[in-house]
Amino acid sequence: MASFQLQVNGRQHTVDVDADTPLLWVLRDELKLNGTKYGCGIAQCGACTVHIDGMPIRACCFPIGKLAGKNVTTIEGLSVHDDHPVQLAWQEIDVPQCGYCQTGQIMTAAALLDRNPDPSDECILRAMKGNLCRCGTYPRIKNAIKEAAQTKMS
């Protein structure tokens, strides 16, 4: 066990965990930020996606010992009032079915729009391919990303 400092959603935290503890379990078990979900544990499904320095990263495979100096954003910190354009579009289109994968989907979509404000259908499919949804909400996810892109640009 060792002590690690990390910056999550703009706040500094100190946790006592093993260096190889995945960020996911620090977020969920230590910081009680349960919006980030456990899916596969091998970075294959995208349910645990968070932003590290703005990039979409699978928290299940990112060891806490490698996080020094980096800023983590989880679904809880994406916006202050749950009003990020992607979150609003998700509500507008009524995207989720069971909802389990959706926080990861939203984090990946938000990161996509940050680096490409007006993505084509091909870009959206390419960027979202690593986020699986067993309910098959993919068409609504694509529509919501296009809606959020329009909102961000207007």
């Binding site: 190889d20 970075a43 320095d53 990039m55 979409p56 990263i57 699978r58 495979c61 990112f62 060891p63 490698k66 990946t108 990161a111 870009c123 390419r126 960027a127 979202m128 391919k129 690593g130």
Partner: peptide, 25 residues
């Protein structure tokens, strides 16, 4: 550029934005 998007989607979590991985992992 398309390759970069594939990298961000599938590889960046482990190999990092700089491609330098995480030593020991």
């Amino acid at each position: 550029h398309k390759g970069e998007e594939v990298y961000i989607t599938h590889c960046i979590s482990c190999h990092g934005p700089g491609g330098d991985g995480l030593s020991g992992a």
